[in-house]
């Protein structure tokens, strides 16, 4: 029974690190049966789930299989976490995105490399004081893009010296007479 590990015609197995092989009965194809850690495939040429690389260099320079690198933003209980060749992370959590879950998603801001689950927070730009998209804010500071004389991270209030935040228009100057007022 060729599926129990006897190499065909007593030739050495064409498998890395002298690991074993077996010969499929009908087709005579030789399959490596005990690939080195992190590898699978008929010649151990593909990385196991949870790893990425190109151990035999079939698609360019040989790259050993290394653990998926998603900056801790994928669940350890998940499978199929990264692409076995490119390492692109496929299941980013906590509103992160990017090939290695290294950015916050569009519509969120913060540091995707932080430890806490609240690393990427929603922009939630104030509709009254924001110019343009309410999902558009600076990816790190979260600063929304405000209308004239409006301030605050979420463009929620008027700058000092201004008042009357009107949706779509911004704030008006106070125009207090400097002689009679304290501010």
């Amino acid at each position: 029974n060729a599926l129990t590990g006897s190499p065909g015609d007593c030739q050495p197995c064409p498998c890395p690190e002298q690991t074993s092989c077996a010969q499929v009965p009908v087709t005579g194809e030789v399959v490596c049966t005990n690939c080195p850690p992190g590898r699978r495939g008929t010649r151990c040429e593909i990385c196991d789930d949870g790893f990425y690389g190109d151990p035999l260099g079939r698609n360019g320079i040989a790259r050993p299989c290394t653990v998926c690198d998603c900056h801790g933003n994928v669940d350890p209980n998940a499978v199929g976490v990264c692409d076995h060749l490119t390492g692109r992370c496929l299941k980013c959590l906590y509103h992160t995105e990017g090939d290695h879950c290294q950015h916050c998603q569009q519509g969120y801001y913060g540091n995707a490399l932080d430890q806490n689950a609240n690393k990427c927070k929603p922009c939630s730009c104030n509709p009254a004081g924001t110019a343009g998209d309410l999902d558009d804010c600076h990816p790190h500071s979260g600063q929304c893009f405000c209308l004239g004389h409006v301030t605050g991270r979420d463009c929620g209030h008027c700058r000092i010296g201004y008042f009357n935040l009107r949706p779509g228009q911004g704030c008006e100057r106070c125009n207090c007479n400097p002689i009679g007022s304290s501010s």
Binding site: R40, I46, D49, G80
Partner: peptide, 13 residues
């Protein structure tokens, strides 16, 4: 115990 099926291109769950 033996291998029943070799499916080298797949990640069988």
């Amino acid at each position: 115990a033996k291998t029943l099926l070799h499916l080298p291109g797949m990640v069988v769950i």
